[in-house]
Every structure is written in structure tokens, then in C-alpha cells.
Simulated scan of single mutants.
Amino acid sequence: MSLLEKLNEDMKQAMKNRDKETLGVIRMIKASIQNESIKLGKDTLTEDEDLTILSREVKQRKDSLQEFKSAGRDDLVKKMETEISIVQRYMPEQLSEGELSEIIQQTIQEVNATTKKDMGKVMSAVMPKVKGKADGSQIKDIVLKYLN
């Protein structure tokens, strides 16, 4: 089942359950997918492209979450946390910190990285391996830890 089919299925269920929050988030995801397919000039997107869109949606919400926390907007913080959890339902299972560290260590050895100057090489090699399965800032922190 493609992401779009799953979203349509869940949208129908959210309508039946009168779950406005879930329905709103699903509609936003579908709109992002639609916009991306128009931009790329395709009828259907690949799984990788779907994953990129979902990752972007989560990142936008996490950025908003930080803004709302710093502004003391607890009502909006709760809303963003709910939206993040809804979007994450459609993403692959996230890697644990141990699994991520292992992948990063292997990649550092593969690209022969030794200093912080090699960070770009390591990040560009790691990101395709963990696409959608880990947060970029978490990856960056772990890479920095190993390159010190």
C-alpha cells in the first residue's frame, strides 16, 4: 500500500471518528505530496520522495515546537506534539542511538575521516543510509562526538 493510499484510508477513518486533528494533519501531508508531485511533474512519487516529504513535515513541526516552547505557548506546544506524533505514524521506525552510532562509526572509517573538517564528507555519506530513520541534528551531534 502506497503512502497516498494509506493516507486516504486513514483520512476516511478520521472523518468517521470525527478526529479533526488527525484529519487536518493528513490533509496537510496530502497537500505537500500533491505540491511535490506537481513540482516534479509526476503523477506518483517514489517511496524515497514520500519519505523526504514526511521528514520535511516533521522538521517543520519540530522547529515550530521549539519556537512555541521558548515563547511559553503551552497550548500550541501540545498541538505541535500531537501533529508530530501523527506524521511519525507514516514514517519508518526510527533508529536507536546505538544503531545510529554504529552506522556513523562505519561511515567514518569508510571515508577515512579524522577531524571536524571531514564532517561534510561523513554527513553526506551517512544521510542516504539513514534517510527518514533518524533526525539530522542527532546525527550531527554523534558525528561531532566521534570526530573530536
Rank of each mutant, 00 (worst) to 15 (best):
E99M: 07
L54G: 09
M15F: 08
M11Y: 10
V143P: 12
T107H: 02
L23Q: 12
T82L: 13
E49H: 05
T115L: 02
I26Q: 02
K59M: 13
A31F: 09
N17F: 03
L40D: 01
D118C: 06
D10F: 07
I139F: 10
E97L: 08
E93Q: 08
Q60P: 03
N148V: 10
L23S: 05
L144G: 15
S37H: 05
L144M: 15
I38D: 02
I84F: 14
D19S: 10
E102K: 04
I53T: 05
Q109S: 09
L3H: 09
R61F: 15
V77M: 04
D19W: 05
M80Y: 11
A113N: 04
L4Q: 03
A14K: 01
M1K: 13
E57T: 05
Q88T: 01
K79H: 12
T22Y: 05
V143E: 02
E81N: 08
S96E: 08
K79P: 12
V143T: 11
A134T: 03
M123D: 08
D19I: 00
S32V: 03
L3G: 06
V58H: 05
S2Q: 04
R61H: 15
G41H: 04
M11L: 15
R73H: 15
Q94F: 06
S70A: 13
N148Q: 12
S96N: 09
T115I: 08
K133F: 04
I38T: 12
D75C: 04
K12P: 00
M11Q: 03
A134H: 02
S96D: 07
G72M: 04
T22W: 04
D63H: 13
T115N: 10
V111Y: 05
K140Q: 09
Q66Y: 10
I53S: 01
S37R: 13
K6F: 00
V77F: 00
E110C: 06
D74T: 12
K117N: 11
S37N: 07
V111C: 06
L4D: 00
Q34L: 10
D141M: 13
S64N: 15
